[in-house]
Design a protein around this nucleic acid. Structure first.
Lengths: 227, 227
DNA sequence: TGAGAGAATTTTGAATTCATAATACCTTTC
DNA sequence: GAAAGGTATTATGAATTCAAAATTCTCTCA
């Protein structure tokens, strides 16, 4: 049950721009021309500029006063930082979920887990990922912490456009599944500390970070300090 | 070394409104009149409305399309959710700091810790709190994760206006100091897991959440689900 | 007296306009 | 031919204007 958002132009525009960025139609670092976007969307500059301000505080766009807006560059470090953060948030979601989830909720997640195992054994990677994601979303929802959900979604949005090649080697995959076995065990026992720990360390995040290395080629060195 | 922000009107206005909210001059739930604020600030509606959009996506303000803006109400649950989140973030900051901080950095934090102990023994509560906060800020800085810092600052800003009465009982205080002893020990050993754990469980957060109960009297029940 | 319909007023959403800063272009000079 | 300086053009920041939605007020009628 999600609250309906009355539509206003600037929200519509913000959604559209988010999409453009996510799908790479506005490339990272690319200058955003107000005039051109206004014409594309058929709106005046006022709602467009409002949308840009929102996107800037969401971290998707960079506003250089008097010098226009550009799509925020993702550096390797930023993405790694973001994944570290998401790991911590997943850990928290696990701890909270353990304390709040109903027995039915646990059963539902176990069911998802079983389905995931099937996909694993059948080597159906896309389906595996999909169910895997639903498990994590379920935990997030079960944690019943709106602020956590909001933050997580924001972070997730920021790195969505990184289309890293998930180099799912056999051994990585096996370990990921093992992690999930541990998660389920902890969840069933409602061992929140344990579940939190497993989720924080969950291979998934680390793997993804590793894969990114080959995708984002920023000028900075990999170990550079913050800008 | 922090980057200078070119001033624009909407940023100035956003800063001012943040202040007003933080200090309660704009009360929670209060309707924000565009006209009045414009006159107070001496600006037109355009930059004001841009500022409101930014504040809305920072979670300080609520925008009801066609019906104006109001200062976001803080419910007990929202504040508790926020503190849970901040605890998780502090935990992460500890883990990361352990791995990255220099020996000098550790020494600096130890020095702060010693100062804090002095204030503890002298029963100087305000000074204690101040040094205590600097320790946590130092860890956050040492974690060298800009995204983490950004999120933490945002969350912190949201709950800043809650002026709960810190009922620092003797036993609470003693335990908080014990927590800090453990933190320092873990930091010196660069035991990131341990430091993370201590920070996540650090009494500080839980205590504050407890204190809030008496301050925020929302219509909702304490255990209510999300709105 | 009070409820409800409808007009007047206010407030918001969005387009337009105006001023200024940044950029591009062209000329001049060495 | 390249660099420097100055002008023209463009893009941005912010005020103003216009349109539509919401709110308030008033008047009627039960």
């Amino acid at each position: 049950m999600t609250k309906i958002q009355p539509r206003t132009l600037y929200r519509e525009v913000a959604d559209r721009i988010r999409d453009l960025i996510e799908h790479g139609e506005l490339a990272p670092g690319e200058r955003i021309s107000e005039k051109q976007l206004c014409e594309n969307f058929g709106v005046s500059r006022t709602p467009l500029r409002e949308a840009l301000k929102v996107l800037a505080s969401e971290g998707l766009v960079e506003l250089l006063p008097n010098r226009g807006a550009r799509v925020k560059q993702l550096t390797y470090k930023m993405v790694k930082d973001t994944y570290d953060l998401m790991g911590a948030l997943e850990g928290l979601s696990g701890e909270l979920a353990c304390q709040q989830i109903s027995d039915e909720g646990i059963a539902a997640i176990c069911a998802l887990h079983e389905r995931m195992l099937v996909h694993y054994h059948n080597r159906e990677l896309p389906e595996y990922f999909q169910v895997n994601q639903r498990i994590h979303e379920s935990l997030l929802a079960a944690s019943n912490n709106d602020v956590l959900l909001e933050m997580y979604n924001n972070l997730s949005q920021r790195v969505k456009r990184v289309r890293y090649s998930k180099k799912m080697t056999e051994s990585y995959w096996r370990r990921a599944v093992q992690d999930h076995e541990e998660m389920i065990a902890a969840l069933k026992k409602r061992d929140s500390k344990r579940l939190g720990q497993v989720l924080r360390d969950h291979l998934c995040n680390k793997l993804e970070v590793a894969s990114i290395a080959g995708v984002i080629d920023d000028g900075e060195t990999r170990n550079a300090a913050n800008s």
